[in-house]
Design a protein around this nucleic acid. Structure first.
Lengths: 323, 323
DNA sequence: GACAGCGATACAAACGCTTGCACTAAAGTA
DNA sequence: TACTTTAGTGCAAGCGTTTGTATCGCTGTC
């Protein structure tokens, strides 16, 4: 049915191995033979069967990309960039969604393992132990999560959180709240630690919450109860939900309470009030993560940590405190 | 290195074929043997190598999902749903981004072809001829694009557009404009046809435009020049950009001009003014498309058209016309 | 003029799995 | 009892590649 290397060999009057080498080891075949073979291949519409190739070489030329929630606006730019970068290197990428469920996540990795050369784990909810175990089976690069000795791409939310707290205290807010995310989240922990380390402010930790609009809306009451006038939310989605939840309770942002998000998603830029937020270089992260992964696939060294800068973008959801 | 079917066979004292059948044809093996084999397999951590399986069976158990732009908020829910549905059926999915480029799209299909059992083509920009040619090589399901005789999932934007026009004329708008999308887009054509067929209104067609915020912003001048007071935009992103562009030129929405988008993305719901829009059942589309694809993979019949309902959601970006 | 060296090619095994066929032993049938 | 059937299993070919090794005809060297 499909045209194979054998067809090309037959038509061009050489052995299959010569055809194979014409593609993958050009220097081993006579230039004339090569052009002839290539011409025939093109003629016949030959496309190498990557599954077959994978079988002998052990390289699938596929990557796995596992994220907690594709629909979370944080991820698409990362997925897009990763996929583009992979394509540049002649790799295809499986995208899988765990629905924030560690069980699903592990299972996904297990089944993907045999068909990929490596996997990108974005904001994994797995335990360190599990990650370390799974790592035996397939090279990883972690995004937004630190596990000792593993290749990692991080975005410096710690610094972002510090900037955010400084911004808030600079505006006169004394009592702050951090609306935390899922409990397994490195980002969330990082933000907590950064905020806790700043002793110029008195900050309450609220959560954990699902990293969604709903999560934010649901946290509104708790935020009000905390008495905080400055809030740092786990991400923009949560921040937006929170602002809505506060509005429903008659609390104005930034009039009564200032809110800062994380991620700089489009919706925040277009919302009302426009969201002050910590911008994450997600596309860059995706690109770099793929490069690291490919490198560790080739060289067997799967280590190194890349820390990417974040930036505080001040828009309209933060304002002066009224004492 | 990795544990294969052979290891399982050796340890459990049976032939590889028995192990194979224990997995894929249980009724052909003695129940006792089967449980023993399965136990050993589990013990050893055996995972079938899908590439090898693909080689013999011709089924990769992979799907390709090709979209114009992952970062366009229209797609993530579709991708997520498709991926989830595929997983349910024990399929993995390659996600690829064409960057709205037909060349890239074709190339992607070509390289993916050998590693997938079928591909989902979302809002393809390819010509019908090309699609029909490519179809010889791999089963397709088209989303948001109609090609005769091909399996298709459509969302009824035509009806949506009619509702939108009615809504606008109902508000007293007489001069309308349609800010069209990319020229290859079925959706865009569909909207034009629907709008043109409504002779109660005088509608100008503006475009084509890139389906982005920038595209919308850039169209602002043209919209003003057209004299229209009611505008239907290709999608929410364009609508949002347009509203911004109009604001920059001192034109208020919905005060001076009413704007309707398409897609019902999150950003529209949170924006200011909240966008009146045509909601698209993207998640449903993704789910159904996968089911259709899998069905056509099995049965060789790759036809049938599913039309999904859309709905006009009236929010704040449309208002009465001032005569 | 015999031989080492080399470039180009052919050969064949291997990758991990599926599957049609052959075989055996037990069970059913006449 | 002799037969056919059937359940359970083994055997081996084959899927489309890659790749180490063998082969072959040259050229160049002493």
């Amino acid at each position: 049915m499909a045209v194979t290397i054998r067809d090309v060999a037959r038509v061009s009057g050489v052995h299959v191995s010569t055809v194979s080498r014409a593609f993958s080891a050009p220097h081993l075949v006579n230039p004339e033979t090569r052009v002839r073979v290539l011409a025939v291949a093109d003629d016949l519409g030959y496309r190498p069967n990557r599954a077959a190739r994978a079988l002998t070489t052990g390289r699938t030329h596929n990557l796995g990309l596992i994220v907690a929630d594709i629909a979370n606006p944080f991820f698409p730019p990362l997925i897009k960039a990763a996929q583009a970068q992979a394509r540049l290197r002649d790799y295809h990428v499986f995208v899988a969604d765990t629905d924030e469920d560690p069980k699903v996540e592990e299972e996904l990795i297990q089944t993907l393992t045999k068909q990929v050369d490596g996997v990108l784990l974005c904001s994994p909810r797995l335990t360190n132990r599990t990650i370390e175990r799974l790592r035996q089976e397939v090279p990883f690069v972690l995004v937004n999560r630190r596990v000792k000795g593993m290749a990692t791409v991080l975005m410096d939310v710690g610094r972002g959180a510090r900037l955010a707290v400084e911004h808030l205290t600079g505006l006169g807010h004394r009592r702050l709240a951090l609306v935390t995310g899922p409990s397994g989240s490195w980002t969330s922990k990082e933000m907590q630690e950064a905020a806790a380390a700043m002793n110029e402010a008195d900050v309450a930790f609220l959560g954990p919450n699902p990293p969604t609009e709903q999560g934010g809306r649901a946290a509104a009451a708790e935020v009000i109860a905390s008495g905080a006038t400055g809030v740092l939310a786990y991400n923009d989605l949560v921040a937006i939900g929170l602002i809505e939840g506060l509005a429903e309770r008659g609390v104005d942002v930034p009039g009564d309470i200032s809110v800062i998000g994380v991620d700089d998603i489009v919706a925040g830029r277009l919302g009302r009030p426009k969201l002050t937020t910590i911008a994450m270089p997600t596309a860059t992260a995706g690109r770099i993560a793929v490069d690291m992964l490919l490198q560790s696939v080739d060289s067997e060294v799967a280590t190194g940590v890349t820390m990417l800068e974040t930036a505080l973008i001040i828009r309209e959801s933060t304002g002066e405190a009224h004492s």
